[in-house]
């Protein structure tokens, strides 16, 4: 298994799982608390499989420094208000669904995991799309916040379609994934009475660099919280 590819996909799942877990005890309603925790659990399961392919899952999750993580900058962004969390989910689950669907079909080393995970991610995507519709086409306040969240995270979406080495996809494949993603997100946002953001996704002013280990400021704080227990009490169990 190609290490860079497993780390890229595994770190995406691990980091977003942790970010979603931060909602425990804070979600707007009990059902959402359970939903976000369930999605986090699915992602954690994917992360464990992927990281175990290339090393010890605990060492990789808890003992790497920030620069060694290969996740997208999108997934490390803080939860913000509920709209930010839903926008992050909308962008990421749409990408993850298309990527896993593609990997499941090619019979490569990740096809088993991808075929399984794509069925779980279909529920994540559905959850995000339904909330996007409700918030966008809801009250004035929910519309305003959902639009703000979609705009704020837009600059992180181009990075998702920068080629990852070792997945067996060529440049053309990534272009096709990007086009399919853009079409679907456009349809959902438009249906939710929201405006498709216009900011840069892929040029010099867009965000990106997570795959090379360059991360945004909030990521360091997140890692500190995620890793401190393991680092303070090596080998602890209960």
């Amino acid at each position: 298994m190609d290490t860079a590819a497993a780390l890229a996909l595994g770190d995406d799942a691990l980091v977003l799982s942790h970010r979603l877990g931060e909602w425990a005890g804070h979600a707007p309603v009990l059902e959402e608390e359970v939903a976000l925790a369930n999605i986090a659990l699915d992602l954690l399961g994917q992360a464990r499989v992927l990281l175990s392919l290339v090393g010890d899952e605990d060492e990789l999750a808890y003992l790497r420094e920030e620069r060694a993580f290969r996740n997208l900058q999108l997934v490390e962004q803080p939860g913000g208000d509920f709209a930010h969390t839903i926008a992050r989910q909308l962008y990421f689950s749409g990408y993850q669904y298309l990527l896993y669907e593609r990997l499941a079909a090619d019979g490569g080393p990740l096809s088993g995991l991808a075929a399984k995970a794509v069925k779980e991610v279909a529920y994540h995507r559905d959850h995000a799309e339904q909330w996007t519709t409700r918030l966008g086409d809801g009250t004035q306040e929910s519309h305003r916040r959902m639009q703000r969240a979609c705009d704020a995270l837009w600059r992180y979406t181009g990075e998702m379609f920068r080629p990852v080495e070792g997945l067996g996809l060529d440049a053309e494949d990534w272009v096709l994934l990007d086009a399919a993603w853009t079409a679907r997100v456009t349809e959902v946002l438009t249906g939710a009475t929201l405006t498709v953001p216009e900011g840069p996704r892929a040029d010099a002013w867009s965000a990106g660099g997570g795959r090379e280990g360059l991360h945004t400021e909030p990521f360091g704080r997140m890692l500190a919280e995620m890793q401190h227990l393991h680092r303070s009490h090596p080998g602890a169990s209960w």
């Binding site: 059902e31 959402e32 359970v34 939903a35 925790a37 369930n38 659990l41 529920y123 559905d126 959850h127």
Partner: peptide
């Protein structure tokens, strides 16, 4: 349907 997610990963409420 109340929620696609319930007490365990495999259930809806």
């Amino acid at each position: 349907l109340l929620s696609r997610f319930s007490s365990t990963a495999c259930k809806a409420l």
